[in-house]
């Protein structure tokens, strides 16, 4: 489906923990056509500031419901967190090119999430459910870990890393990924690695995957003015020149990016 601009009803908008919120919207059209890795451009308020829309990944769909999770980091997400159930939200979506995955993925899939990076990966895990992907989740500390129950409910195997060691492996999720790949027998090596998280994490994932000769798909974040390919603001450097994160991405093959 091509992206459309629609006003959708807010079913719920609740704090899940710390600064993180879960927003549920009523849109059958978007729920039916969205694929993992795609995002919405949200006008957080009908009038007044902020001016530009805010890009948020699609976290899940359920019937006609579209779920998002977001962290309050600035004025736009703060205004969004004040929006109430029953109000209408002006959105454009679904936007961008999401993750590529076959109906029957070749080899195992590994999902690597850092912080809010769980957002699009939970949706992917749902679609990969029959293949029981391995999910590596990293966060600063135990309190900051998100969506563990949800991934488990999809039958994913999980491994956790925290910077302070308050849960799971002590260190970066990317160190854990590297170790895991080293220890794996050749036959058990994953066919695909999907990742979303902060830029340094994605850079490390791309490097590790290159070292192990495994293809990676990374979901990037860049400041964007429009979100649908018009402003040329969100470009990222690739082997074939600048590409728009909003249109040719947000998911790119790690091998194609120039860091």
């Amino acid at each position: 489906m091509t992206a459309t601009q629609v006003k959708v009803k807010i079913i719920s908008n609740r704090k899940i923990k710390n600064n993180c919120w879960r927003l549920e919207l009523d849109s059958g059209a978007i729920a039916r056509s969205a694929s993992p890795g795609q995002f919405l451009e949200i006008k957080v308020c009908d009038e007044g500031l902020p001016l530009l829309r805010r890009p948020i990944s699609i976290h899940g769909v359920n019937g006609s419901r579209v779920q998002l999770i977001y962290e309050v980091v600035g004025s736009g997400t703060r205004v969004l967190s004040g929006r109430r159930k029953g109000e209408f939200l002006d959105i454009i979506g679904p936007l961008g090119k999401g993750f590529e995955y076959g109906r029957k993925p070749v080899g195992k899939s590994v999902l690597v999430a850092g912080g809010m990076g769980v957002a699009p990966l939970l949706f992917l895990a749902r679609r990969l459910k029959p293949a029981k992907p391995l999910v590596l989740i990293g966060a600063g500390s135990k309190e900051q870990l998100l969506c563990l129950q949800e991934f488990k409910a999809f039958g994913c195997r999980m491994a956790i890393a925290t910077d302070d060691g308050s849960a799971g492996f002590k260190g970066k999720v990317t160190e854990m990924l590297d170790r895991l790949l080293r220890e794996m027998p050749d036959a058990g090596r994953p066919g695909n690695i999907y990742a979303c998280g902060p830029q340094p994490m994605l850079k490390a994932v791309a490097k590790i995957c290159r070292g192990h000769n495994i293809s990676s798909q990374l979901s990037l974040e860049r400041h964007m003015a429009c979100g649908f390919g018009a402003c040329l603001g969100c470009v990222v450097s690739t082997k074939s020149g600048y590409k728009r994160v909003c249109k040719e991405g947000p998911v790119f093959k790690g091998e194609e990016l120039v860091w």
Partner: peptide, 23 residues
Amino acid sequence: RSGNLPPRTCETPSGMLNSVGLE
């Protein structure tokens, strides 16, 4: 023209700055 180095846009009070650079 490939245009300017990113980041190329940012929001400012009631406006935005851009430096797309004629890509």
